[in-house]
């Protein structure tokens, strides 16, 4: 464990709970893409199948349980409890256009052709594009609530911190995973446009609104 990965994991945890609290407190999921949340739930479920078979540490197991539970809870709040506030008219990204190609790629490009490894690879590839429905929804509505932009900033920062973690681990531990690094770069690059808007607008107390 290193500081980049620890802060990255905490940033990820913060993002998930900021979103969960926003929906719970405001009793509304306006402006939030349910499709992205479904993809994130799929990412965690396919990645953490080794939860009971491969014990790493209390921290590792605890975080896996929290990530799965909080994301499933978010999907539940969006599609069941506060379904009436779900903005399906703007959450129209065709996620099958993400899941199918990512699934095919996981079969073709992986470290080891075994079910658990292919599912892990699928999860890594899917996570790199899972935010697209959310970014697409913001581009359609033309703006995002401030709390939603904080959610996105924390979520985008987590994988950017993981990139620093992989640089650290490469030089100090000789650890390198090309699949995770490439997917992590794609994932972080997708946030660049948002990071620019967040830093130039939200940081100065303005609302995040995309140029019309």
């Amino acid at each position: 464990m290193n500081i980049f990965r620890l802060v990255g994991d905490l940033s990820h945890l913060l993002a998930i709970f900021v979103l969960l609290l926003k929906i719970w407190k405001s009793r509304s999921c306006a402006g939030v893409s349910g499709k992205s949340q479904i993809l994130f739930a799929l990412v965690f479920i396919t990645r953490y199948l080794d939860l009971f078979t491969n014990f790493i540490s209390v921290y590792n197991s605890l975080m896996k349980v929290i990530f799965i539970a909080s994301t499933v809870a978010t999907v539940y709040l969006m599609y069941i409890k506060f379904k009436a506030t779900y903005d399906s008219n703007h959450d129209t990204f065709r996620i099958e256009f993400l899941v199918v190609p990512v699934g095919g790629l996981a079969f073709l490009v992986n470290h080891d052709f075994t079910p658990l490894e292919i599912l892990w690879t699928f999860s890594i590839y899917l996570e790199s594009v899972a935010i697209l429905p959310q970014l697409f929804m913001i581009s359609k509505t033309g703006e995002a609530e401030t709390i939603t932009s904080h959610y996105l900033f924390a979520l985008g920062s987590y994988r950017a911190l993981y990139l620093l973690n992989w640089i650290y681990r490469y030089y100090f531990e000789g650890y390198f995973d090309l699949i995770a690094v490439v997917a992590g770069c794609v994932q972080t690059i997708l946030y660049c446009d948002f990071f620019y808007l967040y830093i130039t607008k939200v940081m100065w107390g303005k609302k995040l609104s995309l140029p019309a």
């Binding site: 993981y162 000789g174 390198f176 090309l178």
Partner: peptide, 10 residues
């Protein structure tokens, strides 16, 4: 990856 196959990251 160059390290053991152990997946120790979240």
């Amino acid at each position: 990856q160059m390290s053991s196959g152990q997946k120790d990251e979240l």
